[in-house]
Amino acid sequence: MTDPIFQAASYLERVCAEISHLSEEVARAISEQGFEIKLHDSNLVSDNQMSGLRYAFSYAVKRVFRNQKKNAQILLKFDLWRSDHPSDWPHAKEALLIVAYDADLVDGWDSEQLDVQADGRLERPDLVSELHQRCDNRLLLWERRINDRSFARQAWYFGVRLCDIHDINDSQRMIVGPLVALLRTPETAAEVLARAEAVVWPEHRTGGWPGGIDPSSNSTACL
């Protein structure tokens, strides 16, 4: 008789192997775009319940923008499961890859900060209140550096469905392409994120916008 627990664990082991392979593939593709990228930390699982179903790989990145003095950060957060709370968010029961960037590695994202609830919002309410939406709600900017017009000097994240990534072409279109567009050609970011079928996040903020910038005035605006 086959042990269902052993079967489930074996399947998860294969998923983790694929996650590791995908992370290495993405890092290599980013390096080929002229960035200097190095693994900083890995398997940064969250401390909360079911942390074994959330993994992250954090990379130190150089050659991102002119006169860069500190390492920037790219963090790949694999959010494989979330609590089964009632939700009408279409991605509530889907495994997601959260692609996060911060211009400062030392003060950058922690894996736990990017735990997503079934309603599409982060589990930490203090972070939710500091997020601003751009690019048809496919990109979330962290307030602390939002006044800088360059995405390369800010902190942000987007998400894609893991089950849609089947090969290197998918990872290029859904992960590497949007990352490079945001860092180098932000005027194309909205189009590239849409082509990547990036997750559309629910409304995160109802207050005012820094500098009077209201993305609702231009649904395709990223900056």
Rank of each mutant, 00 (worst) to 15 (best):
L22A: 14
A17V: 11
A27T: 04
H21E: 15
L12N: 11
S46W: 08
A29C: 13
N43K: 03
F35M: 04
E18P: 04
C16P: 00
V45I: 10
A27N: 03
I37Y: 13
S20G: 13
A29S: 15
V15N: 02
A17I: 14
E18V: 11
I37C: 14
A29D: 14
S23E: 03
S46D: 14
E13R: 15
Y11P: 00
A27C: 05
N43P: 00
I19D: 10
E13T: 09
S20Y: 10
R28Y: 14
A17F: 10
A29R: 07
K38A: 08
I30C: 05
S46C: 15
G34D: 01
L44V: 11
L44E: 11
L22Y: 15
R28W: 14
A29L: 10
C16V: 07
L44S: 09
C16T: 07
R14L: 09
I30L: 10
S20A: 07
R14P: 08
V45G: 07
K38N: 13
L39F: 02
L12K: 07
H40M: 03
R28Q: 15
A17Y: 05
L12G: 03
E24Q: 12
L22R: 14
A29M: 11
L12P: 04
F35Y: 11
D41M: 06
K38E: 08
H21M: 14
S42P: 00
E24Y: 05
V15G: 00
E13S: 10
C16H: 13
I37L: 15
Q33V: 00
E36Q: 11
H21S: 09
D41F: 03
E32C: 00
S23Y: 01
V45Y: 08
L44W: 02
Y11N: 14
L39D: 03
E18S: 13
L22T: 14
I37G: 06
S20R: 15
E36D: 10
Q33A: 07
K38W: 15
S46Q: 09
Q33K: 05
K38P: 00
H40N: 05
V45R: 15
E25W: 06
Q33N: 03
K38F: 06
E24L: 06
S20V: 11
E13Y: 13
I19R: 04
R14H: 05
V45H: 06
I30N: 01
V45F: 09
S31V: 02
C16G: 02
L39K: 13
I37F: 11
R14Q: 08
L22F: 09
H21C: 08
S23K: 00
I19K: 10
